Amino acid sequence: MTDANRTPEVEIADAVTGNWVDRYAPARARPFLRLSRADRPVGTWLLLLPCWWSLALAMLHTGRASLFDLWIAIGCAIGAFLMRGAGCTWNDITDRDIDGSVSRTANRPIPLGQIGVRKALVWMALQSFLALLILLTFNSNAVLLGILALLPVAIYPFAKRFTWWPQVFLGLAFNWGALLAWTAHTGSLGWPAVALYLAGIAWTLFYDTIYAHQDVEDDALIGVKSTARLFGDATPLWLRYFMVATVCLLGLAVILAGMNANVLALVVALGGPWAMGWHLAWQQRGFDADDSSKLLRLFRSNRDAGLIPLPFFAVALFV
């Protein structure tokens, strides 16, 4: 295996220009951090935001907040970084024979020979173990949910081999925090969290279909399935469906969570899904399947889309 110190620096297709990994990380650590997508932080945000939505709505539902809720928010942030890294490492291990054939992924550490499978497995286990330490600070039901989250994470990399809807499996994995954070605050799972989870899955179908359009030509050549290939020219229509589903389900989650809150708090909180919907509509209108750079910009903009509901939820807590 090529030593990381002797491997020439390469450009990662979808990495953020001037990211901290390229600028500050030690040379030997860079392949491992790139394996975890630390140079591409939007994925961590997309994993984290449903957790924060859920925690905010759980506090609205119970009418209480504590210092431990601050730890839940921080723990979810650290856990999102670690588990996104572990999941991406697992994805690259399972896709090691595919990534080299796709232009966007050919320079990832494993196909490039910077990291072998054995070291990648150890790196994945280390990240998962650290995330487990954080999970164990939550209540037992949340711990159980966290462990169950490993199932969709394990299945997702294989989904594109057997279904045209691998984005559904990504949504199942990426939005699990909506269930976990609610349970970490309330002690048990509730219907608002389920509605929020479904909203997150619809949102994932929206943004990852946009993302997958970058690879449709390579995917077709190697036989990899995706919603982008399935929808083709009808993608803008499907994006509209996913947008409406996201906003409606997120609104339903707010209503279910805020049934015991005062009317003004509920109205303020409902502004979150409405405002997020305008951002998704902007993305849908700007979709251009033939412009890869724009597709990547639209995908990355979902961090901002997901942040939009949080101020509304926060204000509702104090109304």
Rank of each mutant, 00 (worst) to 15 (best):
T2Q: 12
I12G: 01
D14F: 06
D14N: 13
D14W: 01
V16G: 01
V16R: 05
V16Q: 09
G18Y: 04
G18Q: 02
Y24F: 15
P26F: 14
A27P: 00
R28M: 09
A29P: 01
L33D: 07
L33H: 04
R34P: 14
L35S: 02
L35A: 08
S36W: 06
R37P: 09
D39Y: 02
P41W: 13
P41N: 09
T44E: 05
T44W: 01
L48V: 08
L55A: 11
H61V: 12
H61P: 05
G63K: 10
I72K: 01
A73S: 11
G79T: 08
G79V: 05
F81A: 15
R84H: 14
A86H: 05
C88L: 10
W90I: 14
N91F: 02
D92C: 06
D92P: 10
D95K: 00
R96S: 10
S103D: 14
N107I: 11
P109Y: 00
Q114Y: 03
V117T: 15
V117R: 07
R118W: 14
K119F: 11
A120D: 10
V122L: 13
W123M: 06
M124I: 07
Q127V: 08
L130P: 03
L132Q: 04
L135F: 07
L136M: 14
F138K: 00
N139Q: 11
S140L: 14
L144E: 04
I147W: 08
L148D: 08
A149Q: 03
A149W: 04
L151V: 15
P152C: 04
V153Q: 03
A154T: 15
Y156N: 03
F169S: 00
F169M: 08
G171M: 04
G171K: 00
F174W: 07
L179H: 07
S188I: 12
L189R: 00
P192V: 11
V194S: 02
V194Y: 09
Y197I: 02
L198E: 00
A202Q: 00
W203V: 01
T204W: 06
L205N: 09
T209N: 07
I210T: 03
A212M: 05
H213Q: 06
Q214Y: 08
E217H: 14
A220H: 12
A220W: 03
L221P: 01
I222K: 09
I222M: 10
T227Y: 08
T227V: 11
D233Q: 14
A234Y: 07
L237H: 12
L239C: 09
Y241G: 06
M243H: 15
V244C: 02
V247E: 05
G251V: 09
A253C: 07
V254A: 02
L256H: 03
L256K: 00
A261Y: 12
L264V: 15
L266K: 10
V267M: 13
V267D: 02
A275I: 07
M276H: 05
H279Y: 10
H279A: 15
L280V: 06
Q284G: 15
Q284V: 03
G286W: 04
D288N: 15
S292G: 05
S293I: 11
N302R: 06
R303P: 08
A305N: 09
I308F: 08
I308C: 04
I308V: 15
I308M: 09
L310D: 00
L310R: 01
F312I: 09
F312H: 07
F312R: 03
F313K: 04
F313C: 05
V315T: 12
L317Y: 12
F318H: 11
